[in-house]
Each structure stands twice: as C-alpha cells, then as structure tokens.
C-alpha cells in the first residue's frame, strides 16, 4: 500500500513538477493560527506541509526556529496538541500530506506504538525525528510502518556513501538532504555541490529527494528545484511568521503570499 506522500510525489513527478514543502512550527505564535496557515499555504501551492513539533531543546536548529519553539511553548503546545491540529486540518483537507518534524523526546514519552497510532489516527503521513539516526531507529521505524506512516530521514553533506545506502533502506516517502553543514537558517547553499550530492543519493535509491536548509527565496528555491524532487523552506517562512507575531491574524495571508512567490519561481 503506497502512502499519501508516495502517491503525491509520484503524481507530481509524472507531471514534471517539483514539490514545495513549507516548514513551520505548530502553535507559533499562537495555536489558533496553525490550521488556517496550513490551509492557506496549500491553497497557494504547497504540496506537503511539514509541521514542527515544539521542543524545549532544539539542538539542530538555529535561532529563528528555536524562538518559534519558545513562542509555541509559551502556550504549552505539546505533541497531543499538534496531533489535534493535524486532525482539525484533515476535516478540510484529506489530500495534502503532513509530515511532523521534531525531536525524539516528545515521542519517547508517549511510547513509539502509542505515538504511531495517535499520529495515524490524526492523519499524519510522515515523521522526521532529527535526533533519531537509523542505528537507534529500528523499533521506531517498525512502529511507524505498522501504522502506514513514512519515516523520513535526513542525509547530510557529511554522510558517507555507505550510510546513504543504509538510511535509504529504512526510509520511505522521501529522503531529506540537508544542503549545508550546520543548523537550520544558516549560510547560503552551493547549488553545484547540492546537485552532485543529490546525484549520489539517486544512485543509491529511487526514493524522491527533498532538499532543505539555506533556501531563502524564489531564486534559491528555483535553483534547488532543478536538481531535487522537493524543496523544503523553513527558516525563511518562520521569519515571516515571527515578524507578524503580534498581528497573528495576518499570518495565513502572508505565508500564502510567500508560498506563491516560491511556487511561481519554481514553476517558471
């Protein structure tokens, strides 16, 4: 049985289009904004929504996404709240795949099986856990697969060829290439290097390849779209949300405007 993510990416591939995957943190700056923002971005051309699960110690994230987590945690947004938001999103959209991205401990505290069941029931399609490498992940991955969820894994510029192979064996849905060494929101990306790495990844797997980290605007999204199957935009979107934290009713429209800009650049 192929997942909503697999089907969605396959149909885009057959149309020759690239997926646009916006990331933002659930509950930032207020829990009431999250679901309307998800719908607005889908309307504007987002293909998959990557929803950040707030965590107190986001070790792999730069200041922009750290602060987003902190704003969400002011409202005590935990995993159960995030799942409730996905469930609410599903009332109006049962097409667009949703991937949760976060750290292991909020999942660990629920237990892998209980989490996987609750996530599948809420309508989640994939789970990316930044601090869960495949070496530790077998039990977790089988819990996800048992509920039809895709485990999404990161590949880094430092990942060896042998590791790429091992990770892709466990992954499903797509794999996510982190285009720069460093934290989210850091440095500019080198498109030629990304192209070389994506080619190497493609030699190891037929899974679609998403690329993220360092994509700031339409131009960088368009460049990445020439080599990747999916373009992930995180910190640049979260910065726009941050700027409107005190006028949160304007966030869905602003996010949609940014998504349209990226979409136009990628499709152009």
């Amino acid at each position: 049985m192929s997942s909503r993510i697999t089907k969605h990416l396959a149909s885009l591939r057959s149309e020759g289009r690239k997926a646009l995957i916006p990331f933002f943190t659930a509950g930032d700056p207020h829990p009431s904004v999250t679901v309307p923002t998800m719908h607005a971005m889908v309307e504007a051309g987002a293909d998959i929504i990557e929803l950040g699960v707030p965590f107190s110690d986001p070790m792999a994230d730069g200041p922009v996404i750290q602060h987003a987590s902190e704003r969400a945690l002011l409202h005590h947004v935990g995993m159960r709240d995030v799942l409730a938001m996905v469930n609410e999103f599903r009332q109006g959209d049962n097409q667009t795949p949703v991937v949760l991205m976060g750290y292991l401990n909020p999942i660990e505290v629920m237990g892998y099986e209980a989490f996987a069941r609750a996530a599948a029931e809420a309508g989640v399609d994939g789970v990316l856990t930044v601090d869960m490498p495949p070496e530790e992940g077998h039990e977790f991955v089988s819990a996800l697969h048992g509920q039809g969820l895709d485990p999404i894994f990161l590949l880094a510029p430092t990942t060896s060829e042998a590791r790429i192979g091992r990770i892709c064996e466990l992954a499903s849905g797509f794999v996510y290439y982190v285009s720069v060494k460093g934290i989210t929101g850091a440095a500019n990306l080198d498109t030629d290097e990304v192209a070389r790495r994506v080619e190497l990844i493609r030699s190891k797997t037929s899974l679609p390849v998403g690329v993220g980290f360092g994509i700031k605007d339409g131009a960088s999204a368009a460049r990445v779209a020439t080599v990747a199957d999916a373009v992930v935009v995180g910190s640049a979107l979260v910065s726009r949300i941050e700027a409107l934290q005190h006028e949160s009713d304007k966030i869905p429209a602003k996010a949609a405007e940014f998504i349209r800009e990226l979409r136009t650049a990628m499709d152009g």
Binding site: M59, A60, L104, V130, D131, M132, P133, E135, E136, F153, L154, L155, A156, P157, T158, T159, S160, R163, I167, V178, K181, G182
Partner: peptide, 12 residues
C-alpha cells in the same frame, strides 16, 4: 546511552 545525534554529526 546510545547515539541520538543529528545526521551531520554521525560521521564525526
């Protein structure tokens, strides 16, 4: 114990 680190650090 174990290794619960982000992918960029695994080779290091």
């Amino acid at each position: 114990g174990g290794i619960f680190a982000s992918e960029t650090l695994m080779e290091a």
